[in-house]
């Protein structure tokens, strides 16, 4: 390994730093890229993701908006429609519900309604997920909702490297992209290449190869699934872990190919179990030839059928954890489901 490659390999950033680096690279390269959101200027954003960017690029490009999610998202849509590339940060993904009209009725549909004569290259960033003690209205995982909307692209990076590459890919994309960032991952460090690169949208990544069962997960659940897989390896159960990365479009091929080899599928996600990502992936397997390769029922592991609770024990119990993934995977491997 030469010196340059060594530097590259050693280069580590946190997930939040990687996102910030992507925004800075894009803003340096393209004057039409602007940031919008609540308290993203001197405050640096609720999770410090935009820290110091206002000093570098000024308040005209790092715009603090009023607390007006519907209006703010709509301004970003209108700006995208007319030549800018706005990145709009929802302070919490939960607040996107205030802006559903602009995201779903406008951003997602404008190109289609106008017969391809319009383009809305807006990027929505959405801090997401539980584990922060912030209770029911600041902890949800609603990414699957947007998987139901043609016209949107929906991403969920699990590593600092992907967080940067996906944001740069989203900015290069002519259609609206929603990126769900997990709040508990912001401080996670990992290797991040320097300079500009893109992570392909719509391509899952096999994070661990295995032959006994397939675990499909996204975002923080990838790390929990990998830890569970290591524990299971000690008992001779060899799990493959697929990082979904993109919910819309979804990479059926990688999932189906894995299921054909392992014969067992488990889907782990932080959203409420019912009507979620697990249902979509299970159905895709059931509708394909991979169904014939199944040696056991498909298993879904999602959040409890309840709002995210406040009490820390309840909160942990409400979403999949390493222990529950490990136990469920063991049952699946032993065909005890």
């Amino acid at each position: 390994m030469n010196a340059m490659h060594q530097d590259q390999a050693l280069r580590t950033l946190s997930y939040a730093e990687a996102i910030r680096e992507a925004m800075a690279i894009a803003m340096e390269a393209d004057p039409t890229v602007i940031l919008m959101g609540e308290d993203i200027g001197v405050y640096g954003g609720a999770f410090q993701v935009t820290l110091d960017l206002v000093d570098r690029f000024g308040p005209d490009r790092v715009m603090d908006t009023p607390i007006s999610e519907l209006g703010g998202a709509g301004v970003a849509v209108g700006a995208a429609l007319t030549g800018l590339k706005p990145i709009y940060e929802f302070q919490f993904s939960d607040f996107a519900m205030l802006a559903m009209e602009q995201i779903v009725n406008q951003a997602a549909k404008l190109r289609y309604m106008l017969g391809g004569e319009a383009s809305v290259p807006v990027v929505f960033r959405l801090p997401s997920g539980s584990g922060t003690g912030a209770a029911a209205q600041h902890s949800q995982s609603i990414e699957a909702w947007f998987g139901h909307v043609p016209g949107l692209k929906v991403l969920q990076p699990s590593t600092p490297e992907d967080a940067k590459g996906m944001l740069l890919a989203a900015l290069a994309d002519p259609d609206p992209v929603m990126i769900f960032e997990h709040k508990l991952l912001y401080k996670m460090k990992g290797h991040v290449p320097a300079g500009s690169y893109t992570t392909p949208i719509g391509k899952a990544a096999v994070r661990r190869t295995g032959s006994d069962l397939t675990i499909v997960a996204g975002s923080i659940m990838v790390h929990r699934a990998l830890e569970a897989a290591e524990r299971l390896a000690a008992e001779g159960i060899d799990a493959e872990v697929i990082d979904l990365r993109s919910i819309r479009p979804i990479d059926h091929e990688t999932i189906l190919a894995s299921v054909r080899r392992t014969g067992r599928l488990m889907v782990v996600y932080e959203g409420v179990k019912a009507f979620g990502i697990g249902a979509e992936i299970s159905a895709a397997v059931a509708e394909s030839d991979a169904f014939d390769f199944l040696d056991a029922p498909i298993l879904r592991l999602g959040a409890a059928d309840a709002p995210v609770p406040y009490n820390p024990d309840l909160e942990r119990a409400s979403v999949p954890q390493v222990d529950s993934i490990e136990a469920a995977a063991r049952r699946l491997a032993r065909r005890e489901v």
Binding site: G71, G74, V75, V77, G78, A79, A80, L81, T82, Q102
Partner: peptide, 11 residues
């Protein structure tokens, strides 16, 4: 309404 404000921001 918000889309119009966005178009003005672009200008």
């Amino acid at each position: 309404l918000p889309i119009a404000v966005g178009a003005a921001l672009s200008a």
